[in-house]
């Protein structure tokens, strides 16, 4: 009874097909939601296709005209693409340089066996917190805090630090500074944690032997920690750069999409968004996307290189 007549299933013992079955959903979703749209984007970039008031213009095939427009001076005399690419880079550098330096410093502090920092979980929790906060809400918060009637200006006047209110949103320096500050706050905790893991991945005995060999803390940092941390540091910098190219939520909400003053805080993706949502200029939006894609793809090759090099070394 325990063994009823068996029906032997000749299913085979090859499991190859299951590998394909399990990855199908991923590739189907990728194909439909990313690859096809990507190709459509490239296709679009070759067409004139926008709304002019109530009239729809195009789509008409125009070859590379959209790219040409992208790289030629507009009526204010500046080359649109270069201006917004420049803005994006300036905003990114202002935030990323302090972000990486501070993160490097904190990572060394946290991993130092001499300093033995207490309450590490608390500090890490606090500095990582802004990373999870909704960027648009964080940005809205900064807008209300730093607006003309906001508490920061109230504080400045009440404490007598300045005679008149500072209009943070009137000057390029303060707007860019605020965006950089927010980016810094949102990302330095994350970077610290990544670099810490990198330092802890270095064989501890190397630090010990360097110390015994007579190296001071600074020498240990520059001669041992930094060179060995390089691959991770490069990974962190490039992923941060790719993230920086996508900068959108913070400046968009802070400046209400206009990149004030005088579009000096308009980023590439804000520029793309303006074509997409305001003027419905799919041709130009496509051209901006393709250029953005090429830049990110180039950078991704670097990341892929560092990642695969690491896994080969493992």
């Amino acid at each position: 009874m325990k063994h009823p007549v068996r029906r032997l299933k000749r299913g085979g013992v090859s499991y190859v097909k299951w590998g394909y079955i399990f990855i199908i959903p991923f590739f189907a979703a990728y194909l439909f939601f990313t690859l096809v749209p990507q190709l459509m984007t490239i296709y679009n970039s070759l067409f004139e296709n926008y709304r002019d008031g109530l009239n729809q213009v195009g789509p008409n095939f125009v070859g590379l005209k959209n790219y040409k427009t992208l790289f030629s001076p507009d009526n204010s005399g500046s080359i649109g693409f270069l201006k917004y690419f420049g803005n994006t880079m300036i905003l990114w550098i202002l935030g990323a340089v302090p972000q990486i330096l501070v993160a490097l410093l904190l990572a060394v502090f946290f991993t130092s066996y001499r300093l033995r920092i207490k309450a590490q979980p608390f500090f890490k929790t606090v500095i990582y917190l802004p990373n999870l906060i909704m960027a648009s809400a964080f940005s809205m918060l900064f807008f209300t805090l730093f607006s003309n009637v906001g508490p920061i200006n109230q504080l400045i006047v009440q404490m007598g630090w300045a005679d008149v209110k500072i209009d943070f949103f009137a000057s390029t320096i303060t707007v860019r500074g605020l965006i950089a500050l927010m980016n810094f706050l949102m990302w330095f905790g994350n970077t610290t944690i990544l670099l810490m893991a990198g330092i802890m991945g270095i064989d501890q005995s190397l630090f010990e032997s360097a110390t015994i060999d007579g190296a001071g803390p600074l020498q240990v940092f520059f001669k041992v920690t930094l060179p060995l941390l390089m691959p991770i540091l490069i990974y962190v910098v490039i992923t941060a750069l790719i993230g920086g190219l996508q900068m959108f939520d913070v400046p968009q909400i802070l400046t209400n999409g206009i990149g004030m003053p005088d579009r000096t805080s308009t980023t590439m993706v804000m520029y793309l968004n303006n074509y997409l949502s305001t003027s419905k200029n799919f041709g130009m939006a496509g051209a901006v996307s393709v250029v953005l894609f090429l830049v990110s793809a180039g950078l991704s090759v670097f990341v892929y290189g560092t990642l695969t090099k690491r896994s080969r070394e493992d």
Partner: peptide
């Protein structure tokens, strides 16, 4: 066991040829 397929030849358990039978059905 049926965890690797057999490139050539035959495997019998009892009277049954088992080459293409999944592990769970080989008892």
């Amino acid at each position: 066991a049926g965890l690797e397929d057999i490139t050539e030849g035959d495997l019998f358990i009892g009277e049954e040829r088992m080459n293409d039978v999944a592990p769970k059905d080989r008892d």
